[in-house]
Amino acid sequence: MAAELMTVEVATATAAGMKAIGAGIAVGLTGIASGIGEMAIGSAAVGAVAENKDMFGLALVFTVLPETIVIFGLVVALLIMFQ
């Protein structure tokens, strides 16, 4: 009986832990992916702005576009954590 009770507790704790790990992976990996995307766009944006200051606004918008990937990751993480 005691052994069975322990097993349920462990299972609950493991499920919560797995959820936290899943949420972490969702945010972490999408963060890395955004970084990779922004590295290329950011380099190009800085290059373009260095030559033509008028491009600043447009360059900034393009640079932050990959941030949407992190937002998707964050939404998935929140769904996992609070569902």
Partner: peptide, 15 residues
């Protein structure tokens, strides 16, 4: 990494 290559290529494209 590719950053400096992308930077210089873009600058010269604008030029």
């Amino acid at each position: 990494g590719p950053g400096p290559y992308i930077y210089v290529s873009t600058r010269l494209r604008v030029r």
